[in-house]
């Protein structure tokens, strides 16, 4: 079996588990909606600078809901010592990382898509016009977010304070990603083309490549027993 198909087996396991219980994505979604809802009370409707605030709300919801999902990523593995079994698999540790990363990527991406829909309805955004550029931004952001998030989730899963510590570890490291996502999507929502946000997209791509590589290299140390 090839490298990627091995990783896909692990991701598939997570996805099947998720389809049966629907726990993670549903709770992420609900949480994302709630963040948008609560932010809404802080923003004056019809505000002139609404376009500047909107992306902030969107990506804050994405970040918090995403962390909620990442938190659960390794908890299921920890129960019944599944992680031990996974680590005993005769595959490279980077395969396990990639598998978990694929799973988290798909969960976070589906959460992001639905949160986008919810957001566009509430804030009167015409999604058809901006679907493609916004989708590209979402994919790039989700890659960076879950690449580091999966690694940190493995770091924090064995700790007593894991829920709190994952947020504390992940949010400051996510600053460039969230900044780039908010700024580029702000441009797109303002009617700019994707090229107008080129610098930010380049930043996202660079971030994704660097941290995917670093995480693959470091994952072994994060789960070593």
């Amino acid at each position: 079996m090839g490298f990627l198909s091995q990783a896909w087996v692990i991701a598939r396991k997570d996805i099947i588990g998720e389809l049966r219980t629907r726990e993670t994505v549903l709770s992420m979604l609900l949480f994302g909606f709630l963040v948008i809802l609560i932010f809404n009370f802080g923003i004056e409707p019809g505000l002139r600078e609404e376009n500047l605030v909107k992306p902030g709300v969107l990506w804050a919801a994405f970040t918090f809901a995403g962390i909620l999902g990442l938190n659960r990523s390794f908890i299921a593995e920890k129960e019944n010592d599944c992680l031990q079994g996974l680590l005993l698999c005769p595959v490279d540790r980077s395969v396990i990382y990639l598998g978990k990363f694929f799973g988290n990527f798909i969960f976070t991406l589906s959460m992001g898509l639905v949160v986008f829909l919810f957001f566009s309805v509430l804030y009167n955004v015409n999604l058809v016009q901006v679907a493609l550029p916004l989708g590209a931004i979402l994919v790039l952001t989700t890659i960076g977010f879950t690449a580091v998030g999966t690694l940190f989730s493995a770091v924090s899963v064995g700790l007593k304070t894991r829920d709190v510590i994952l947020s504390i570890l992940l949010i400051p490291v996510m600053v460039p990603v969230v900044l780039a996502a908010a700024k580029s999507s702000g441009r797109v929502l303002d009617g700019d083309s994707l090229a107008g946000a080129g610098l930010w997209l380049a930043l996202l791509v660079v971030y994704d490549v660097i941290f995917l590589t670093v995480a693959i290299m470091l994952f072994d140390y994060a789960v070593e027993e």
Binding site: V155, V175, P176, L179, L203, Y207, F211, V214, Y221, A222
Partner: peptide
């Protein structure tokens, strides 16, 4: 082990943070 993982990721992040905030 775990803090080394975070220490490495955090340090690599610093120049990217700086660039993004500068832009």
């Amino acid at each position: 082990r775990l803090s080394a993982v975070f220490g490495i990721v955090g340090w690599i992040d610093v120049p990217i943070v700086f660039m993004s905030i500068r832009w």
